[in-house]
Simulated assay, not measured.
Amino acid sequence: MKAALVGTDGTLLHQARRATGRKRGPEAVVESILAFAAELRAYGEEHFGESAVAAGVAVPGIIDAENGVLLYASNLGWSNVPLRALLGERLGVPVALGHDVRTGGLAEGRIGAGRGTDRFLFVPLGTGIAGAIGIAGSIEAGAHGYAGEIGHLVVRPDGPHCSCGQRGCLETLASASAVTRAWAAASGDPEADAADCAKAVEAGDPRAEKVWLDAVDALAAGLVTALTLLDPSMLIIGGGLAEAGETLFTPLRAAVEERVTFQKLPHIVPAALGDTAGCLGAGLLAWDLLATEVSA
């Protein structure tokens, strides 16, 4: 878990990390979050002279943000967990609940790589792939909380099976996990990962180049589908694969440019906030919640 104290303007005042722990049921994880939040509150009181006035929590899965419910999280095995109510009851402050990628996108859009951009798409390339659709300073969640799930665009209909039930989803081909699997097989080293593949590409290994360019080609296909639908002025790429820098961005920009026809080519830039984006975005959600309550 990553957590932070965030100022009204999105300034990162303090950050901390803690292992989630081995107990993975909702009650155990909520208790871990509460204990972590109590530490942050105490730190704020000691170092800044005041307590936190609201909390923002970002979690993976399908979120009903309006009602504060985690509807479904396959990697956690949770469904219909009323996280906002559980946390609000114990913390005694207003609580905002958000999707982890969308909160990261909110931060990148307001105070990161997309600052000042009216329309953007934030796509972190990690264990999976998701997206955050930025519109005029906010993130579009969709009618049911599913907006931005770009990782489940089918880009290779005869591709690998995906946990969602489809074949050839973008995240089965272009996520850090997908590159890790492909490079481990191509290199014959079961311990090799996506970062190793990027280093091998930089060293001129043709096997690595093939694995890397296959992933880049699939990613470009998914991104062009997304920009055809959304027409963003900027594509912000984050996550582990983006840490490869121009090893990723040079071929990716070329592959997207080659695929576009009538579409306007967006700026393709790396994310600016790294793995603090989720914490900062959760803090922004909390401030937005307070502003909404005051205006109401």
Rank of each mutant, 00 (worst) to 15 (best):
G128S: 09
E202T: 15
L248E: 03
E258F: 08
W287V: 14
A176W: 05
R24L: 12
D214G: 07
C279V: 14
A38T: 13
E27A: 15
D288V: 00
G21S: 10
G44M: 08
S187P: 03
L223N: 05
A65C: 09
W78D: 07
Q166R: 15
R181G: 01
E257W: 03
G240M: 08
G104C: 03
G104W: 01
L170F: 09
L76N: 02
A208Q: 04
A16I: 08
A52G: 13
G239H: 08
G112W: 03
A195P: 00
I139S: 05
T20N: 08
I33N: 01
E257F: 04
C162Y: 07
A136F: 05
F122P: 03
E46W: 01
D275F: 05
L125I: 08
T172N: 02
S138A: 13
T250V: 15
G21I: 12
E246Y: 06
V260D: 02
R115E: 14
I268F: 09
E246Q: 14
H47P: 01
A203T: 06
H161N: 07
E45M: 11
L285T: 06
P160R: 10
R90V: 04
A186K: 05
G159F: 09
R167C: 12
V57N: 04
G126N: 05
A195H: 08
A16C: 08
E31L: 12
G109I: 00
E243D: 12
R17N: 14
V30T: 15
G49W: 09
A198W: 02
E243S: 13
E293I: 13
H144I: 12
E257S: 15
C164F: 07
P157N: 12
F120C: 10
L12T: 07
V224P: 04
A19P: 13
L106Q: 05
G116E: 09
D275V: 02
E31C: 04
T172F: 03
P60R: 10
F249N: 05
V155H: 02
V216S: 03
E45V: 14
T127D: 07
D231V: 05
A37T: 10
L83I: 15
Q263D: 14
P266M: 06
G165N: 11
A96Y: 00
I139T: 13
R119T: 14
G109C: 11
R119K: 13
L12A: 06
S79C: 04
G222E: 08
V216K: 01
F262Y: 15
G278T: 10
V201L: 03
R167G: 02
F120Q: 09
L219E: 10
L273T: 11
A255R: 15
L248G: 07
L280D: 03
T225I: 14
L5Q: 04
A54K: 01
L252M: 11
H144P: 00
G44F: 03
L213R: 14
H99D: 15
E258P: 00
L153Q: 12
A286Q: 06
A272W: 00
C169P: 08
A215S: 15
P26H: 05
I139N: 02
S51H: 08
A291Q: 14
T20W: 06
F36L: 15
A242F: 03
A37P: 11
F122N: 03
S79I: 00
C164R: 10
A174V: 12
R41Y: 01
C279H: 00
L285C: 13
A200P: 05
I62Y: 10
L13A: 11
A19T: 10
